[in-house]
Amino acid sequence: MTAPRRPPPDPQPALLVLTGPIARAEVPALCESLEALLRRSGAHRVVCDVGGLGTPDAVTLDALARLRLTAGRCGRELVLYRAGGALRTLLSLTGLSEVLPLCPESPLDPLQTVRQTEEREEHLGVEK
């Protein structure tokens, strides 16, 4: 009887840094850049740093939604990192918070893989 093989570990998540404001004409190029990044990296997850976007507007939301669709078409996950209060509010009001998850704000490396806790595995950072 042979032992079951473990799947190879996921590659390190890719990092996409957005600065703003974003012009509507830039959105298709951003999506193309994301596709190229995913092809190069082979990452299954993209951490999108939105901390430098400034004041979010409708174009910001459109760009983020299209980036999410682009990642999804490639079979990848996109999470937002360093989303400010105004962006969080807009995501919630528009319902986009359901499809654009936020990466937990943490002093730890934003590219570390966020793991689900398994049975018998302790929750990290939680005291009993």
Rank of each mutant, 00 (worst) to 15 (best):
D49P: 13
T55K: 08
E35P: 00
L53Y: 01
V79W: 07
D10W: 03
L111A: 08
A14K: 01
G20W: 03
L91Q: 05
L37T: 10
L108Q: 15
L37E: 04
A36K: 15
L16M: 15
L78C: 08
A58K: 08
L34I: 06
E26R: 12
P56M: 08
P4G: 09
C48R: 02
D109C: 10
Q12V: 12
R120Q: 05
V99F: 08
L64Q: 04
S106E: 06
P11Y: 03
A14E: 02
G52H: 13
D49T: 10
P101K: 08
R66F: 01
A23L: 12
V46G: 01
A14S: 11
T60W: 01
A23G: 10
C103P: 00
E122K: 09
A43V: 06
A43K: 02
R68M: 04
P11L: 07
D109R: 09
G84F: 00
A25E: 15
T2L: 15
R40Q: 14
L15H: 11
L37N: 07
V126F: 12
L102C: 11
A65D: 05
L30W: 03
P104F: 12
H123V: 09
V27Y: 02
A23I: 01
Q116M: 11
I22A: 03
G51S: 15
P110N: 13
D109E: 13
A3I: 04
C48Y: 02
P4S: 10
E118H: 02
E119K: 10
V17F: 06
P11K: 04
G72S: 15
S92P: 05
P13C: 08
E122N: 13
L37V: 08
R66L: 06
A83W: 00
V114S: 05
A58R: 09
E122D: 13
R88Y: 02
A23Y: 04
L93S: 09
R40S: 14
L124H: 13
D49R: 09
L100I: 03
